[in-house]
């Protein structure tokens, strides 16, 4: 292909990526080093609000933002270096807690609490998703031709459901005396409150995420199963290899690149876990890094939001994803080089 043709085809995509991914990312990076705030004046203000019968007036000192002649709030932006990062990570409190050997004190700091859950969630769901995905793929592959279509359809269903809706449904099924909690209570003959402590919520979250994502892994693996070398399988059969040995020594090595691919996608997605926290309204017990960014960004009733800390937290999440992907990317890189050599 001529370079001009190539460029013409690629240009729209490159422009879009620059516009909607690269520039915002740079902007977030820059914002994480700056703080923008209004200039406040302290003035005495009298406020009158309704009681039931008469008005209640109070006079107190309030911080009122200064406005320029056009009526706009005067803002100053200053460089703060890594201060926003420090405010997110709270290294001093973290080291004090580590030195005191107090896990509870570490978990009292939002960032570390969120990191603990995010890592646990990511690393626990990964093998479950790969394992269950493979199992579903094998089941589909071994299903009779006639039922294969319906089986694929049914196993894909969880993946189609919007994540927030799915999480909310699980919430309602288990919340209070929801149908499934009531069923569990009847079965175990004891009172159960699924949303009263962290571990039950975390278990539900893991189960929900695995249920939701496994179909994606399954469909990828199923595609891979179609290209397994049938000759190798037949020879293994003749050599007397068991079903397990055929899977272990022929099918899985063949699927390995796909397993790595699914793992990479899953790690990237799961490290940004967010829907489960909101859908289960679990922030009293469990929070994630992505939720923390959202919480900084969300304005309170008086309109304040912590843009700088939100930017810092978003950058830290990105750095976290890169770190967690390094082992898999190195493996892919090695395979790539070996293939070329």
């Amino acid at each position: 292909m001529k370079f001009r043709t190539f460029a013409a085809f690629v240009a729209p995509s490159v422009v879009m990526m620059l516009l909607f991914i690269a520039f915002p990312l740079v902007s977030v990076l820059v914002q994480s080093f700056f703080v923008t705030q209004p200039v406040y004046d302290t003035v005495e203000v009298e406020t009158c609000t309704p009681g039931f019968l008469g008005q209640i007036c109070t006079t107190e000192e309030k911080s009122v933002p200064r406005r320029d002649e056009n009526g706009r709030i005067v803002e100053v932006t200053r460089f703060v270096g890594l201060e926003s990062y420090r405010n997110v990570i709270e290294p001093d409190r973290f080291w004090a807690a580590v030195k005191a050997h107090s896990w509870a004190a570490v978990q009292a700091i939002d960032f570390w609490k969120a990191l603990r859950f995010t890592l646990m969630f990511t690393l626990v769901t990964l093998p479950l998703v790969v394992g269950l995905g493979l199992a579903i793929a094998l089941a589909i592959n071994n299903a009779a031709q006639a039922v294969r279509g319906p089986v694929i359809f049914v196993s894909l269903l969880p993946f189609i459901i919007t994540p927030v809706i799915g999480a909310l449904s699980i919430n309602w099924l288990f919340r209070g005396d929801g149908i499934l909690t009531a069923a569990l209570e009847w079965w175990l003959q004891r009172d159960i409150a699924m949303f009263a402590q962290a571990w039950t919520i975390e278990t539900l979250m893991v189960l929900y995420r695995v249920w939701h994502v496994a179909p994606f892994a399954a469909i990828v693996f199923y595609a891979g199963l179609q290209t397994v070398n049938q000759d190798s399988l037949e020879s293994a059969l003749i050599d007397g290899a068991s079903r397990w040995q055929r899977l272990r020594f022929i099918v899985i090595p063949h699927l390995m690149p796909l397993i790595v691919f699914v793992a990479i996608i899953h790690l990237m997605d799961t490290y940004r876990v967010f829907e489960e926290i909101v859908g289960f309204s679990s922030q009293g017990h469990v929070i994630s890094l992505q939720w923390l960014t959202y919480d900084y960004l969300k304005p309170d009733q008086a309109g304040n939001r912590s843009i700088s800390r939100a930017s810092a937290s978003a950058m830290l999440t990105m750095i976290g994803i890169v770190i967690i992907l390094i082992p898999l990317l190195r493996r892919t890189w090695r395979d790539h080089r070996r293939a070329r050599a």
């Binding site: 609000t49 009681g51 039931f52 309030k62 911080s63 309170d300 009733q301 008086a302 309109g303 304040n304």
Partner: peptide
């Protein structure tokens, strides 16, 4: 209200405190 409840002390800092 008659027992003397006071208005919610709305302000910029109160938003953050809440």
């Amino acid at each position: 209200a008659n027992n003397g409840a006071v208005p919610y002390p709305a302000s910029g800092p109160m938003g953050i405190m809440h």
